[in-house]
Design a binder for these strands. Structure first.
Lengths: 191, 191
DNA sequence: CCAGTCATGACACGTCATGTCATGACTATG
DNA sequence: CATAGTCATGACATGACGTGTCATGACTGG
């Protein structure tokens, strides 16, 4: 792994987030990031495909985690039960790695920059595609699989927003559960 | 309006779509587009903020249309009814302007290029934000407004996909209705 | 006919992103 | 030790993207 000073990738991530929050995404140039991390511009693009990607490292493996989760779940569960019982707890773990403080700083940077918001949307879109495929592999029909995947991701996304807004107070699985309950209530006939 | 040869914007849109489909988005340079349209590079960026935007012209006014629609709807309707009765018919009109053939070509270009898919996601995200605000202005609570907006957009998006897949066969309002019915069924307790 | 407006042309420039080759620290093998 | 191989990084060149600025010239209104 690391030969020179190890952790080049991590240094770049930290430097980038600091600068994005301080100056804004557009105003921050790649040479500024690499200077702060003690590296060269070319090295930045060896670790990240583009300037935005520095805030989304590692998230490329979310889809495969989702796929594995669905493949291992009891076959009896329907789509909505899977979301409630399978995804919510697993999702919580993902967010344990980094502290709440880092998550809030990261969100602040993303919310401030349309280009980063777009990247965030793509992340959730990929997650939805993985879910959809997982549902279909379990025998769910195409339309239902697609809608269940989209609704699951929507609930997850809305729940994360609420959870961060409240500084992590009710824990994430609880917040996801509340959000799914609200979805059920909203779409029930008499609503 | 047009002084030299009129319709610069439209010529650029046509040239760009043709080239994107023929060579791909990345392989197409802005000078190639402008050459085909008989204009200069600088002029392209006067009409469109960036290369992707040439496929999304005019869509910036979708949010305000959504806002007006919700403001004018009968106050008695709940969120889900609004989606069914208000948005579906209005949405259909938007797609009448250009022919089905153009919509299919445009979708093919977008689906082939991640950067364009991201832009498409942003479009729907803006639509969702407009819907959410509209619901809140009608007195709907924050969480419900957010979820109703997201679900409405999801249903719309999925319906458009299915509608295009089937070459516009059941018309769009019908397809949206079917999709919403599938959502209700999916989220109903026994599903 | 003249002044003002405005879309476009022409040119310069900084940043992003990538291809290519060189360098030098580490590893493996004898 | 020695030598060959690997691999992350440095250094350099290049092309496309996107913007600022000024000039031009067709149209418009008085």
């Amino acid at each position: 792994m690391g030969r020179w000073q190890p952790g080049a990738r991590e240094r770049l991530e930290r430097a980038a987030l600091d600068l994005f929050l301080d100056q804004g995404f557009t105003e921050t140039t790649v040479p500024q990031i690499t200077a702060r991390a003690g590296l060269t511009t070319r090295t930045f693009f060896r670790h990240f495909a583009d300037k935005r990607e520095v805030l989304f490292a590692g998230e490329h493996l979310v889809p495969e985690q989702v796929a594995r989760l669905l493949a291992e779940a009891p076959p009896s569960l329907g789509p909505m039960d899977l979301i409630t019982e399978g995804l919510a707890p697993a999702a919580a773990e993902v967010f344990q790695g980094r502290g709440l403080d880092h998550l809030l700083r990261r969100r602040a940077a993303i919310d401030a920059e349309p280009a980063l918001r777009e990247r965030e949307l793509r992340k959730y879109s990929l997650m939805s595609e993985a879910l959809e495929k997982g549902f279909r592999d379990r025998g769910v029909d195409d339309l239902t699989a697609r809608l269940a995947a989209e609704i699951a991701v929507t609930a997850f996304r809305v729940a994360v927003t609420r959870w961060l807004d409240r500084n992590g107070d009710p824990d994430l699985p609880t917040t996801i559960g509340q959000t799914l309950a609200a979805v059920r209530h909203l779409t029930s006939p008499q609503a």
